[in-house]
Design a protein around this nucleic acid. Structure first.
Lengths: 347, 347
DNA sequence: TCCAATTGATTAAGCGATTTATCAAAGAGG
DNA sequence: CCTCTTTGATAAATCGCTTAATCAATTGGA
């Protein structure tokens, strides 16, 4: 079938060991290849169209040059969370750059860990876990199989590796921005329980309120579960509040959730940002597609993905990542949805 | 390190061949395992926590149970084409169901075929090519390596395997719907050259015009290249036309492109659907998120992905797919953007 | 009763690489 | 001139699993 190293060796009139060493550029004391032999080997390989078999190499070396990517939901690329789609971009790009391949797994947040089974697959050198639930069985699985892993957006724990963004600061600047626009009743559509980012974003929200000397009113905080539907329903509930209590601004824990709220606001016949101002979170491509465009807390998502790959590759290749728990800075991308801009701004 | 078949064999007091056969349920004439031995083997495997090494199995069998998925762009999951994101869902789900793993490759549409190199990787049993350019080098690469492949949305050619949707009919019903609403100047924002779906959708558009006895005016057809920016710019150009020539309805070859056009329409101070009606294509989750919600031609995207997996698995496992070139039916999902619905409808 | 077929299991040969141990020849140093 | 090191290369073991070849012990049919 396919041409093997043996055939190359025969044609080049040498041994498979020499071919292997020549093609891989191996330079150890026990095996070396002269310039002349190397040329013969290259020529033979080219002539036969030799391509090394990665499976055989994997078996021999115990390394596969494949990294797993575990996304929390099957629908991670569509309507579940644009963050996942974007972070996958960053991860993919960096993997290509590092000459690693990507094996995709989804459903990492499934409580039964069903899909997780396939992950425990000695074909991958390591795994990136995106937004794993705090009690995910995947951690144990990876550990028992000695598969190194790096998480993205996971609670920072001693002895683990995780890339995070400064969620507390994100919650703070989003809320502070709304407060600076004069809003005094700012609601928070928070993320789901069990998701790492929920608590710090909420804490940031509270801190900003305190810093602005506004009351911290827990009746203005609702669990919207990070999805469109949640944002929609929670917003409907809040808009139904009687006038003096009704919030005039929303801080949503997620862009998708913000869009759900925007739909509810429009359906209630109110205008954004005149009646209700709104700030989202993640600042994915999606935030530029809403109407009006959405002010959103920006995380350096691509860099987060790339950094996770770097850290994982470091671990796989036996190096120690400089910082096991990096926290990347966030910023606020101001668009039309919070009223601080002239209307009709683009992206 | 990890426990191997040998250790299981030793503990169960039998041979590795028996262990392999028992664990795989192999039933050939040359190897069989009695009930008693099977039990011992199961017990030993369980006790040791044995997990078979897929790399070793791959090497021995020549099959990897891994399928490649080649997407046309690196940004396939974000702002490039929601179709890709959605079809990936369908593919992933079906692969899980079939116990195959998914290796992800992107950039399949890159002219230099750069990323394609890694695809020629004997680790995968087969590949799914999503929207490959007509002249993609990938076809030859796969063929020279004897890697079976199935395309999604590729020109239908004798001797190839491809899952398609009825693009001509899609173009027709989209345009016919606009014509039935009384529009006489319907513009088409067509897809890029070299993409398979561009021509049939355009042909469908023309056929519908003819069926409605409307003139086929080529000045109303523009290449919007399937992306947001293209839709935006083309729409701007069309809206700048003097009144009697200016189209009153757009048929965009893609939802993203339609959203670009919608932005241009809003910025021009016109209303959708009152001033301009618009119909998109793909009917991905994204079409429900626009404002107003977007009427769009629906393809059974998940089914297309699942069908491609089925066909590929059939080929990989030596069966012959029933129909090598299935064409799936399309339909029109009517929403608010074309004026045939009361305003304020949801999804 | 005898030979053939079946059952249950083992041994060993791959699969296609990497890598260690080993060795011959050449060059260096005293 | 002899030993020591370096250079260049090979043979063979190994990675963990599958499977063909083989074989002993039963079973069954005529």
């Amino acid at each position: 079938m396919a041409v093997t190293i043996k055939e190359v060796a025969k044609l080049a009139n040498t041994s498979t060991a020499a071919v292997s060493a020549a093609l891989n550029g191996t330079r150890s004391k026990s095996i070396r290849v002269s310039e002349a032999t190397r040329e013969r080997i290259y020529a033979a390989a080219a002539q036969l169209g030799y391509l090394s078999n990665p499976v055989a190499r994997s078996l021999a070396t115990g390394k596969s040059k494949v990294l797993g990517l575990m996304l929390p939901y099957v629908e991670a690329f569509t309507d579940h969370n644009p963050f996942c789609a974007q972070v996958t971009n960053g991860i993919m790009s960096e993997m290509v750059r590092r000459h690693y391949n990507l094996m995709l797994y989804t459903g990492g947040a499934a409580a039964d860990g069903s899909h997780a089974a396939t992950l425990v697959d000695s074909r991958v050198d390591g795994v990136i876990l995106v937004m794993p639930p705090a009690d995910s069985p995947l951690f144990l699985k990876c550990e028992s199989r000695h598969i190194p892993y790096v998480s993205i957006l996971r609670e920072q724990l001693e002895g683990t590796w995780s890339v995070n963004a400064d969620d507390l600061e994100g919650g703070r600047i989003a809320t502070a921005h709304l407060a600076s626009m004069g809003h005094t009743r700012i609601a928070h559509l928070k993320g789901g329980e069990g998701i790492t980012t929920t608590a710090p974003r909420l804490a940031g929200y509270r801190r900003a309120l305190m810093e602005a000397s506004l009351p911290v009113d827990n009746t203005l905080v609702f669990d919207a579960g990070f999805d469109w539907r949640g944002g929609y329903h929670v917003a409907q509930k809040m808009l139904a509040m009687p006038k003096p209590n009704r919030p005039t601004a929303f801080f949503a824990a997620n862009d998708l959730c913000a869009e759900g709220a925007m739909r509810a606001i429009r359906e209630a016949g109110m205008s954004i940002p005149n009646d209700i101002a709104i700030v989202g979170y993640d600042d994915t491509w999606f935030a530029t597609m809403t109407q009006p465009t959405l002010t959103s807390v920006r995380m350096p998502i691509d860099e987060m993905g790339a950094l996770a790959v770097q850290m994982l590759v470091d671990r796989v290749e036996g190096r120690i990542p400089a910082d096991p728990l990096p926290v990347l800075p966030v910023s606020l991308t101001v668009r039309a949805s919070c009223g601080s801009l002239q209307p009709q701004m683009s992206s």
